[in-house]
């Protein structure tokens, strides 16, 4: 890489200043504020902030419900990442073939990504709701098992994973399509000449060659599942039944904005941030070694 040397000492700082300002205003300042709030106990309307050190963290780390929400988050993130990355890859491979109406399919596949998570949640609510959903109605003809996610935790979890994966599928497909297009045709032609079947080509050529894309998507999807999945949970299950779908970001919101416990909510956001930073670092340390650029 070529190193640029600026003649003026201050120019480089001036050039990065806008970026720094944005980062400070929208990242460091709020994050710092969270950190500050997390060591205080304060009544909702303020006035009497009491410094309590790490008590908010201690309270969380000795609360079984909090561990439940951490576990839920990991199950949820693993489910969403697995489903939307694998699903996205399979659909992208299909959409990469030369078929009639290709342009339309490719565009249509991106649509779900344009739907806000909350709206996606509402859509799934209308399809799956035990009281007025269309799917339970049809299912009642084939099975007597009630997929009542208002009371069955695993059904609720499966439902929010499905809904969230669906909203993120389009994004993954777009990236995989780009990755697939970048695979040199000469490699694929060579494989054809060697008589490789579709499965063989997929496992021996496509998967390794798009591993950078896959790696990127796994990281992004995971972060998305941890942070950005609030809308679906809020619209569909509200964390229930019991606390079966209460993931960390939802509990954080609930304790802060409904329960008005800002200190605990801030502490939770600090922990969540640490978890996601930690996970991302782990992925870069270990998974990236398996990626061929």
């Amino acid at each position: 890489m070529k190193r640029t040397v600026f003649p003026n000492r201050w120019l480089p700082y001036l050039l990065v200043l806008p970026q720094m300002l944005v980062t400070i205003a929208f990242f460091f300042w709020p994050a710092g504020k969270s950190l500050y709030l997390s060591v205080f106990k304060s009544p909702p309307f303020g006035g009497r902030d009491v410094f309590i050190g790490l008590d908010n963290f201690v309270a969380l780390l000795t609360d079984r419900d909090y561990y439940d929400s951490v576990l839920n988050s990991f199950v949820f993130a693993a489910g969403v990442t697995g489903l939307s990355v694998v699903g996205g890859l399979l659909i992208a491979v299909l959409a990469n073939q030369k078929i009639r109406g290709l342009a339309f399919y490719r565009t249509a596949l991106l649509w779900p990504y344009g739907i806000a998570p909350a709206v996606a949640g509402i859509i799934f609510l209308f399809i799956f709701h035990p009281a007025y959903g269309i799917l339970p109605y049809f299912l009642s003809f084939v099975t007597t098992y009630e997929f009542n996610w208002l009371l069955k935790g695993w059904v609720a979890m499966a439902l929010v994973i499905l809904a969230t994966s669906w909203t993120h599928l389009g994004y993954n497909i777009a990236f995989f399509l780009a990755g697939l297009q970048a695979i040199p045709t000469s490699v694929m032609e060579a494989a054809n000449v060697d008589g490789a079947g579709a499965v063989r080509k997929f496992t021996a050529i496509i998967v390794p060659l798009i591993s950078p894309v896959t790696f990127y998507l796994v990281v992004v999807n995971m972060v998305f599942a941890f942070f950005n999945s609030f809308g679906v949970i809020h619209a569909v299950t509200h964390g229930g039944p019991g606390n079966a779908t209460e993931i960390m970001v939802f509990k954080l919101w609930k304790d802060g904005f409904v329960g008005l416990n800002l200190g605990s909510s801030a502490a939770q956001s600090v922990i969540l941030m640490a978890v996601v930073i930690g996970l991302t670092m782990l992925q870069f340390r270990f998974a990236e070694k398996k990626v061929t650029y």
């Binding site: 009371l151 069955k152 935790g153 229930g240 039944p241 019991g242």
Partner: peptide
Amino acid sequence: ESELENIFGGK
């Protein structure tokens, strides 16, 4: 309400 759900759901 969470605990009611746990009870009604048989958990």
